[in-house]
Structure formats: structure tokens, C-alpha cells
Amino acid sequence: MSIEGRLEDMGVTLPDAPAPAANYVPFVRVGDMLYVSGQISAAADGLICGKLGADMTVEAGAAAARACAINLLAQVRAACKGDLDQLVRVVKLTGFVNSTQEFTDQPEVINGASDFMVEALGDAGRHSRSAVSAAALPRGVAVEVEGIFLLR
């Protein structure tokens, strides 16, 4: 089954790839490697803002990370000129969690992105990962995730 077909079965529609918010490009392809800039937690109804450990639960943070993963795949599709089946595997995700100094569940938050990639892509979605805290993220969003992908 195609990746788009799996996403459809999951009830996920990829948005158009978000435009960069500053002086950078959304992705860079070098040979068969694709480096996607950090995607902030945003859904169809707007930004997902909050600070883990203050005004947001781990579950809400994981949902925000899932939204980042959806936006990452939208960027991959744009890089592949609409053919998401060029994606061979997710190599690495780096997740940043807007959290208080005392909050230590960053891995559980970023699981929202990791779990989505595995659900959508199967073994090709398994990846290496970092999950780190940030004192603040752009526009007050809860999560930002960047990714490295292998393409055909």
C-alpha cells in the first residue's frame, strides 16, 4: 500500500507544506538524504501553544508532536514533488519540547511524533532520535521537530 493510502486509512490528510517563517529553506536534499527544517506544532485550526510542566499535559504535548510529524511528512512530499513513495525511511528525528525546568518527560512527548512515523510507515518509520527541553520555542508553540530522511 502507498504511504498516502496508509495515511488515508489512518484518517490523516497532509496539509500543504508550511512556508518558512524566516530566512531559511524548508528542506535541503543532498543526494538521497533529505534534511527537513524544524516543524512547529500547528494544526488546521492554528498553532498548538503551551509549556509542558506548566499548562500542558504530556498527552497534549504528544498530540502536538504528532502534528509536527504530519507537517514533516508534508515537507517530505513537497521535496519529492508530490510522490511520497520516494520516502525510504526516517533516519532521525530531533524534538524540542517547550517545558519548565522541572519537566523531565520530553521523551514521552516526542513519542507522539515517533509513534506516528511508525504507524504511518511501518519499519521505515523507525528512527534514531533526540528529545530535549527548550526554555521557549518560536511563537510559544509546545513542540518543534526536525527530521532527516532517506529517499529513493
Rank of each mutant, 00 (worst) to 15 (best):
K81Y: 11
L137T: 07
L121S: 04
G95I: 04
M117W: 04
V90Q: 04
G95S: 06
D115E: 13
A120T: 06
G31F: 01
L137Q: 06
G38I: 07
L34G: 05
A60I: 00
S128Q: 14
V76G: 04
G112I: 00
P138W: 09
T100D: 05
K92Y: 13
G31A: 11
I48N: 03
F27W: 14
R77D: 05
F27D: 00
A136L: 13
A54C: 03
L73T: 01
N98M: 06
E119R: 14
V145T: 07
N23R: 14
V109P: 06
A134K: 13
G125P: 03
A64V: 00
M33E: 15
L73D: 00
M10P: 01
V30K: 12
E119M: 07
C49R: 14
L14Q: 03
S130P: 02
D85G: 05
G5N: 15
I70M: 01
D55R: 06
L150Y: 12
L150D: 14
A78S: 11
L73V: 01
L47H: 05
R89F: 00
E146V: 00
V25A: 12
V28K: 08
L151K: 14
V132K: 13
Y24P: 02
G147C: 12
S133H: 12
S114E: 10
A42K: 14
A43S: 15
E119L: 03
L34N: 06
L93M: 05
V132G: 10
C80L: 07
A67E: 13
G50K: 13
P138T: 08
N98V: 02
C80W: 07
N111M: 12
H127A: 11
S133A: 15
G53A: 05
A78L: 13
A60H: 11
T57V: 08
Y24N: 11
A54K: 14
A142Q: 12
E146F: 07
L47N: 08
A65K: 02
D105Q: 15
M117D: 10
V97H: 00
R66L: 03
C68V: 01
P107Y: 11
L87I: 09
I110D: 04
Q86L: 10
